[in-house]
């Protein structure tokens, strides 16, 4: 037996040959379609290239241009603004629904789960077009409801809202669609988080005379922190890179008002064919998002008090 520990590397490689055989399909595709493009795009961020004419090396120029590009800045600002509008209500709804699904006694839980979850499995393009009908200024359902509200309620008339036609409202319209689209996803994640909290903690707290709100504050919320942090990071990434939602609903408009970073990148790359510049932007933002995620991750540990 002891000679096993003195085997040569060659022998160990041979003994485990099936390991290398079995991982080789994965690694072939992984390197060709994952790692090689990653390296190639790092190279691209230092050149000027439209995909047809030869690339020219420009050093750091692409990165320096980013600092002065108003469209780039607008896209980052829009991403943050849209995130600021939709993430809080989405989290509140998702947490509320997860609580409902987690309590045994409430009726119609299955219906709630199914209906809130369905958007996760629906082609975004279809639903974005449906929403664009609902948002239509003259004949959309939302403005019809405003009209009905005005007729029924005697005070404070609200004007019809130019949902998709005004720069002031386009971010709100996208955000409503995003809440509808992503609440279910966060709901199931939060439900999984809630189900991971040991029941004994609540039992002990009940014996100690802690009411429901105190239990929520001292048990549920602290122990849900890892889940919230994960949902937060997923939302952060999702908001930066989402595409279908804005591409179909508003095409980033009016003007640039609802162009998030993902759509900006797509336009730079596949409308203007600025491959070098787009790669530099993608790398810069990927690093930024990664660092922000790390900062959010520091929140993960529950307080130990």
């Amino acid at each position: 037996m002891s000679q096993k520990y003195h085997m040569s590397l060659r022998h160990r490689l041979w003994q485990n040959r099936y390991f290398y055989i079995f991982i080789s399909p994965f690694f072939t595709i992984f390197i060709l379609f994952g790692i090689y493009p990653l390296a190639f795009s790092l190279y691209l961020s230092f050149v000027k290239w439209d995909g047809l004419t030869p690339a020219t090396f420009v050093g750091l120029e692409n990165f320096l241009t980013l600092f002065q590009d108003d469209e780039f800045h607008a896209s980052l600002w829009n991403t943050v603004a849209i995130g600021a509008i939709y993430i809080a209500p989405m989290f509140l709804l998702a947490f509320l629904f997860a609580q409902i699904l987690n309590s045994e006694r409430l009726p119609l839980r299955g219906l709630l789960r199914t209906s809130v979850f369905l958007p996760c499995i629906t082609p975004m393009v279809v639903i974005a077009i449906v929403f664009s009908l609902l948002y239509s200024a003259e004949s959309g359902l939302f403005n019809f409801l405003i009209k009905v509200g005005n007729a029924m309620l005697p005070w404070g008339k609200i004007d019809p809202i130019p949902w998709l036609e005004s720069e002031r409202w386009s971010k709100v319209s996208v955000s409503i669609l995003l809440v509808w689209r992503w609440t279910g996803y966060n709901m199931v994640l939060m439900l999984a988080g809630l189900q991971g909290i040991p029941l004994q903690l609540y039992e002990a707290a009940t014996i100690d005379g802690a009411g429901r709100w105190r239990q929520m504050w001292h048990i549920t919320l602290p122990l849900m922190r890892p889940t919230f942090v994960f949902c937060g990071i997923m939302s952060l990434i999702g908001t930066f890179y989402m595409f279908d939602e804005v591409f179909v609903l508003t095409r980033g408009g009016p003007g640039m008002s609802s162009t998030n970073f993902g759509l900006f990148l797509f336009n730079q790359a596949f409308t203007d064919f600025r491959f070098g510049y787009a790669s530099a932007a993608a790398y810069t933002v990927a690093v930024g998002v990664f660092l922000t995620s790390l900062i959010i991750l520091r929140w993960r540990k529950p307080r130990t008090d």
Partner: peptide, 9 residues
Amino acid sequence: IPMAVTMIP
């Protein structure tokens, strides 16, 4: 790595 970085290559 986000997909966005490898899209062009």
